[in-house]
């Protein structure tokens, strides 16, 4: 009796679904990507209370050495020389939209006098709410999660 020849085993790795997986990943990245209006590199302070900041909020960032950048939330941030320019910027933003929230993105090591000048300008411009941008505080074993005493 003549035996039927065995079917030939395919030795290649099946790669047909590779493109599907890759395109799924692409869709994930495309959906989650968000374009930041302010890319200033700062070390944010840590807090336990962290509320979601509304989209399209205006940004004021202060670096460790006191450099200030502003953005109305629609375009990339631009540097400004000092708090007086923040006041004129904020006044323009509030005039266009009185309920516009402001986000203060300041380095945790910046001396408070720089922050004071910016907050004062925002108050004078009649801003209604300021969000202090922060990172999630890590809870230590002690449970209270603070970093008191420096």
């Amino acid at each position: 009796m003549r035996l039927k020849a065995r079917s030939v085993q395919n030795t290649g790795i099946p790669t047909a679904s590779m493109a599907d997986i890759a395109f799924l990943l692409i869709i994930f990245f495309m959906v989650t990507i968000s374009f930041e209006v302010d890319k200033t590199s700062v070390t944010l302070p840590e807090t336990n209370i962290r509320l979601e900041i509304p989209k399209q909020a205006a940004y004021v960032s202060i670096t460790e050495n006191g450099q200030i950048r502003v953005s109305s939330g629609e375009e990339i941030s631009v540097p400004v020389p000092g708090p007086d320019e923040v006041l004129s910027f904020a006044a323009g933003v509030v005039q266009a939209d009185p309920t516009k929230p402001f986000v203060l993105k300041a380095d945790k090591e910046v001396p408070y006098q720089y922050v004071d000048g910016v907050v004062d300008s925002l108050k004078q411009a009649k801003a209604q709410v300021i969000y202090l941008l922060s990172m999630q505080d890590t809870v230590d074993d002690g449970g209270d999660g603070d970093e008191s005493g420096g």
Partner: peptide, 13 residues
Amino acid sequence: TTFAATRGLDFSL
């Protein structure tokens, strides 16, 4: 992609 920090403490004036 950059993971933007989008949370903070609110401070109402």
